[in-house]
């Protein structure tokens, strides 16, 4: 890449410019990689630990074992109580995808209303929405559980997904509000003059422009659902319905022996789908949004 850049230039003036650019590019990569090494060290350590025998993990400060072994992965892949690991992955995936769909749709609708429509009570409702962020979840667990329990929805996925389709995560609504309010207002004014209603402005103007916010929301909704432990703990009873975090935590028990190796191996495996999801979606963050093309 560097040689290409250098050989591409011909005149001496552009050559120095190109050389300087090449130098900054190299420096940028070197600097970023050093920073990355620091940030990723703990993850590398975890990966190293997943290749150690279980009793050699806690309290061991080394990075990589001298003779790596894969017994931990083997045990992690065995499944739990007759339920195969693939089942936990599938359950988690189902919930995560459901969460993404529900959260994106419901939050985008609510955010559009807050950010782009003037209606009576908007301020009060917005304040109420923000206030739902402020209460620690611990005191809400029990009343919420009682609701779902009375209705007989415990041990189904409904309690875990219903809130997502009803925009109960104010974080996402607020996130999208912030993005949508940043979009130039003349866009929808123009659309209005063209006779567009809110539904069409939302769909054809705002949604495409709010793509970075939607992608961000999707990524977070996926990961949060993927890593959620408490919801599945309270609402899922049948092992066939368990998610990965519930399975993960079964390798540790303070009252009996703990298998740290299998647990770390499992959490390494659990990372793979989220990394893939992120890799797939972050591409959409790359392309900058150009508003100019839409103005005409």
């Amino acid at each position: 890449m560097t040689t290409q850049a250098v050989s591409a230039s011909s005149s001496s003036a552009t050559r120095t410019g190109a050389r300087r650019r090449t130098l900054t590019t190299v420096l940028w990569h070197v600097g970023t990689l050093i920073l990355l090494a620091i940030v990723l060290y703990p993850l590398v350590w975890l990966f190293g630990a997943s290749l150690r025998p279980s009793h050699d993990i806690v309290g061991n400060i080394g990075l990589f074992p001298t003779s790596p072994e894969f017994g931990n992965y083997q045990r992690a892949l065995e499944g739990i109580a007759g339920v195969p690991v693939s089942r936990f992955f599938l359950n988690s995936l189902l919930l995560a995808v459901g969460s993404v769909i529900g959260t994106v749709i419901s939050s985008a609708l609510a955010a559009y209303a807050f950010a782009r429509i003037r209606f009576t009570g908007r301020g009060v409702l917005f304040a109420l929405m923000i206030s739902t962020l402020l209460l620690p979840f611990h005191v809400l667990i029990i009343p919420q559980y009682i609701v779902f329990q009375r209705v007989g929805l415990v041990d189904t996925y409904v309690p875990l997904l219903l809130g997502k389709f009803l925009a109960t995560e104010a974080f996402f609504v607020f996130l999208m509000v912030q993005f949508m309010r940043g979009l130039p207002r003349d866009l929808d004014e123009a659309a209005k003059i063209d006779g567009c209603g809110h539904a069409r402005i939302f769909w054809h103007v705002i949604l495409p422009l709010a793509r970075p916010a939607i992608i961000t929301t999707s990524i977070f909704a996926f990961i949060w659902s993927w890593n959620d432990f408490l919801g599945p703990l309270l609402y899922l009873q049948t092992p066939d319905n368990y998610t990965l975090p519930r399975a993960l935590q079964l390798y540790i028990d303070q009252t009996s022996a703990s298998d740290y190796g299998a647990m770390i191996a499992m959490s390494m495996l659990a990372l793979v789908p989220v990394i893939l999801f992120f890799l797939a979606f972050q591409r959409f963050l790359v392309e900058g949004v150009s508003t100019s093309g839409l103005k005409g």
Binding site: I142, Y145, Q249
Partner: peptide
């Protein structure tokens, strides 16, 4: 028999929640 299991701390959090809801296993 329909089984349900968790680690100690989580187990008791789930049980107290169930007690409040009126439905122990």
């Amino acid at each position: 028999i329909s089984p349900d299991f968790a680690e100690f701390e989580a187990y008791w959090q789930a049980r107290s929640t169930e007690v409040a809801g009126g439905g122990l296993p």
